[in-house]
Write a protein that binds this DNA or RNA. Structure first.
Length: 484
DNA sequence: AAAAAAC
């Protein structure tokens, strides 16, 4: 098996890798590092959780090690779609460049220009940026991209979703034609393929499945929510969320709760706090320093519940999240996969539970079509969606830690250590004749498939590695106009 | 209809 020491990395980089405790590269690293070190363009098709970041930072540092930066002319450029992701790359760079003298600057919005300007003026080897802020610097005449030898585009498919592709094209055109390009995307949408055809030169293509997971070890469930009265819907939904959390009991060590709208992120966070939960919001309207603080707190465990918009749905490397709660059904089906992918990482088991209001049912259907499976319906939670809910808001429920273990202990036992048994074909649950949910299955039945009829070789759950829509490479995309 | 990202 390949070791990092076989990869011809610079000795100082190798040392830093060893310091960090790594010996064996992940598949994307083993695939991307050698061609990158040879100066070739790389097209990496991989998601977060695959070790993607190191697959470009390690060769970059090795290649840049000799040579010096000139003022205002960075020697390399990394582009990421969100500020947090850019910051994450910067941390990664610090880790692996610690034995070198390479310098870096992080150019993201939401912070003042002053410090960034100073660094650029002095000259940096590596510039890590979100596209908007980078172009802003460029337009102010503070920055020359003609010295860029290596350019990295990370999470290109998300850049596409966010409308950054024109910016990316522009930035490409500002850099020398002779640069080396390392380009990463989780999927190969036609637009992405067009970009790679235009700006990459005979790239080495490396495609890897997601690391060890995508649902195989994620227990999913959806709770159909019907408010008793229109004007109580919001209150009752928050109440339902708390019950959902409580029912998971101690198995829920930390969780991300996704909402579709920023206002709801704020409202839900405030409500949870009021009820004694250790919760903080994160979304794009909060100022950057707070976003950073919150994320750091969530990572180090001082914050237990992160209430998030889709700013946190992809890419952020938050290890060991036991639960993901979808307070809203995401309106883009792919976002569901990204959101629940925040749990069950690195081979751990995870639980992903979602609340579905009547208006969300169409979106739920879209998701189920996408993942080609039905998400198990959870039994209605006792006492919810009834007029009693509003009292609950004020009284008894305010003690989240209170044990209400009756239904929980059982449900737990099902999902507690699925990791060990996950590899099994798993059908203990019997063929199950489709239909309405609220049978006695406590809902936590793992994606028990049961829909072999839904098309030839239907994957069960999200499949062994990753969903079909993600796995599909661009060749397929071009030739298969979407069977259904 | 919303989120992200530039001021």
């Amino acid at each position: 098996m390949t070791k990092f020491s076989d990869l011809k990395l610079d000795p100082k980089v190798l040392k830093a890798v060893e310091d960090a405790g790594y010996e064996t590269p992940t598949p994307i690293q083993a695939g991307a590092i050698p061609p990158a070190l040879e100066g070739r363009d790389v097209l990496g098709i991989a998601q977060t959780g695959t070790g993607k970041t190191a697959s470009f930072t390690l060769p970059m540092i090795s290649l840049l090690k000799r040579g010096r930066a000139r003022a205002r002319m960075p020697r390399s450029l990394v582009l990421a779609p969100t500020r947090e992701l850019a910051a994450q790359v910067a941390e990664n760079f610090d880790t692996y460049a610690k034995h070198t003298k390479l310098t870096k600057a992080l150019l993201i919005g939401g912070v003042s220009f002053g410090e960034q300007d100073k660094l650029i003026d002095r000259g940096v080897d590596v510039l890590i940026a979100t596209p908007g802020r980078l172009l802003d610097h460029f337009e102010r005449g503070k920055l020359l991209l003609t010295g860029v030898q290596i350019m990295v585009v990370d999470e290109a498919d998300r850049m596409l979703d966010m409308g950054f592709i024109p910016d990316i094209e522009r930035i490409f055109q500002l850099t020398p034609f002779t640069r080396q390009t390392l380009f990463f995307s989780a999927t190969m949408a036609p637009e992405i393929e067009r970009i790679t055809n235009t700006f990459l030169s005979n790239p080495e293509k490396i495609e890897v499945a997601r690391a060890a997971t995508t649902g195989e070890n994620i227990t999913q469930g959806v709770l159909m929510f019907k408010p008793s009265r229109r004007d109580r819907a919001a209150t009752e939904k928050r109440d339902m969320l708390r019950r959902l959390i409580e029912r998971e009991g101690e198995a829920c060590t930390n969780a991300i709760i996704f909402c579709n709208r920023k206002v709801d992120v704020d409202v839900v966070a405030k409500s949870l706090k009021k009820h004694g939960y250790n919760a903080e919001p994160i979304h794009g309207d909060l100022d950057q320093s707070q976003r950073m603080r919150t994320l750091a707190g969530f990572r180090d465990g001082s914050i237990k519940f992160l209430i998030a918009s889709d700013v946190a749905a992809r890419g952020l490397d938050i290890p060991a999240v036991s639960h993901v709660f979808n307070y809203d059904v995401p309106s883009h089906a792919e976002d569901y996969v990204h959101r629940i992918g925040r749990t069950g990482r690195a081979g751990r088991s995870g639980v992903a539970l979602m609340i579905c209001a009547p208006v969300d049912e169409k979106n739920l259907a879209d998701i189920e079509r996408l993942v080609q499976n039905q998400i198990p319906r959870l039994d209605a939670l006792e006492g919810t969606a009834t007029p009693a809910a509003e009292e609950a808001e004020e009284t008894a429920e305010s003690k989240p830690s209170r044990s209400r273990s009756r239904s929980r202990s059982r449900s737990r036992s099902n999902s507690e250590e699925p990791a060990a048994e996950a590899p099994e074909p798993q059908e203990a649950e019997a063929p199950r004749s489709e239909e309405k949910s609220s049978s006695r299955r406590s809902g936590r039945g793992r994606r028990d498939g049961g829909d072999r009829d839904r098309g030839g070789n239907t994957p069960t759950g999200l499949g062994d590695h990753l969903p079909d829509f993600i796995a599909r490479s661009f060749d397929d995309r071009q030739e298969t106009p979407e069977a259904g």
